[in-house]
Design a binder for these strands. Sequence first.
DNA 1: CAAGAAAGCCAAATCGATTTGGTCACTTTA
DNA 2: TAAAGTGACCAAATCGATTTGGCTTTCTTG
Lengths: 338, 338
Amino acid sequence: MGDSSRPSRATIADVAREAGVSRTTVSHALNGLGKVNSATRDKVKEVAASLNYRPSVRAQGLRSGRSQALALLSSMPSAVSAGPSQLGFFTELAMGCARIALLKGYVFVLAPPDGDANPVDRLDIDGAILLEPAADDPIAAALSDRGIPFVVIDGPAGERTVDLHHEDTAELLVSHLVERGAQHPALVAGTDRRRSQAAAREVYEAAAARVGFTPLIAEADESDGEDGGYRASARLLAEYPEVDGLIVPIDAFATGAVRAGVEAGRTVGDDLLIATRYDGLRARTSTPPLTAVDLGLDEISGAAVERLVAILDGGSEPDASSASAPTLVVRESTSGPA
Amino acid sequence: MGDSSRPSRATIADVAREAGVSRTTVSHALNGLGKVNSATRDKVKEVAASLNYRPSVRAQGLRSGRSQALALLSSMPSAVSAGPSQLGFFTELAMGCARIALLKGYVFVLAPPDGDANPVDRLDIDGAILLEPAADDPIAAALSDRGIPFVVIDGPAGERTVDLHHEDTAELLVSHLVERGAQHPALVAGTDRRRSQAAAREVYEAAAARVGFTPLIAEADESDGEDGGYRASARLLAEYPEVDGLIVPIDAFATGAVRAGVEAGRTVGDDLLIATRYDGLRARTSTPPLTAVDLGLDEISGAAVERLVAILDGGSEPDASSASAPTLVVRESTSGPA
DNA sequence: CAAGAAAGCCAAATCGATTTGGTCACTTTA
DNA sequence: TAAAGTGACCAAATCGATTTGGCTTTCTTG
């Protein structure tokens, strides 16, 4: 158990006193800087080891102006991003980022999307990865305000944006439904104007024109979660019974759509094909399991962290991200019962 | 995008100069301490706002000796804890901890289990939550060394341990198989000597004595993951064909066990019942889905954080944790095809 | 051999906040 | 009227490191 008699850790001054040298010399000796006699250097190292000295990360941070910490931030409503069991898109990205960050010598701070409270001021970070910022994103503003550099995952294209390949993803979904024989695929979208939504609409409408079906778009509010998707889909199916496919990018909506389909007497995977975007817990455990897209989040988070670290460490930008294309994961919701 | 011209943030000295008072007075005014004329206080606040002043978390940390940060740590091999898609037990706990920690005014640092590197020295934390430490756990040693208080999830019972209810969990699994008619339930366990394993063995053997079946235990190495579970189960089923139930606490082993069962010509859920412990992605997406236990990780992580914060803030210990008992989630692997 | 270089070491400044221990000018109270 | 408060403020110490700018010696080298 944690010892409650906290033995105040040895400081550089303790080492200096014990070794009979100045703090400067201790610092130089331990960091391999300056001119230090090798005998002195050894002596200092020995004393440091015997006192079990470790430099204080806090003090180093204050002095150097860097904390060697990064964070993943998002102002998305957590109902959408996290899901009921805390597993999901945000979490998966966070773990991916954390792993790479650690390899690069940074620690990773977890700031769960919390709705109102803006955590930026309480975070001691050198840089951040910002997930899908809305226009006028408050977190983006706070970061700029504090002079904290950040990389965006899924924002307007640019030097500091890592793309989520929304167009490709949407294209995969639409083409797949069409290939599977859907004559009247509809889109169930979110009301808020993020890039993923815009891309889905564009690609969907382009496909409608190309293939020759009438575009039908239902909308629901992201923060309503599964129920929102359910209601939008139910309305859609009631009003347009000819609809035989649903593209539902937001997975919380998608499970709602399944419910609506079943209640409307449809057989999901047979006379109603449903596909969603994020291949997470919801898609995999839905009944039937949902066709979804493997977005390659490991690569995405890795690319984001690498770009951020490149900016922070001032080195050369990493190679143009060889981000592999997203791939479809076909499941029963578009391929009928196994 | 992050602005690369970093405008060095306003410091308390800037505010003091601008307001024509000393740094002391600024500090007192902003923190509501000391005796400050209310006109002066207002003036200081106004200047602080106009300069967009925010105290440096780094400097506060150095001064106060606290970083207001916590971390979840584990020395378990990540093959077991994290799983291929980074989702899992560790992640679920981390997100739970992070949420509560944030509510309590702490930020949460993510330190993915990384095998060799001991992250403790690079972490600026006030306290930690340690997951399932082995005997002579290196991370536990490092924490004690640095004088960092920690709470254990799943360790020897005590003031600073939050229990995972292994006995109850194991009991649930064994009784369930017996109830479902298993005559010869076997146990597939890990080789390493952690509490969960010990509890599973004890409860299993007690049940064998009580109910009257011959205990059969197969072992596999945790770090072999699914394959280890597969091989152990295959051997077991080949040697003891009468086995009609498998208790496989480690979920990675469990999916291996399913594979072994199928290859041995069994029908999982019918003539071979399989149940596992952690109700995560593996259990839910296995074919067939696995009966598992809802461990109540949200409550566990909440209790751990609350206890830790109580220790750190020196307040009274929180009420004896009213940790609710784990509950069984029955799925096809023990109840036959739907 | 004197000027200059290099080795070896250290005192003090610095990072940005909080806290301690004052000073000074006015009240109160005894 | 002297002693004791108290309101308002500030200089300097402090936290624990790194870095700047010396200051001595001891070589080199023209």
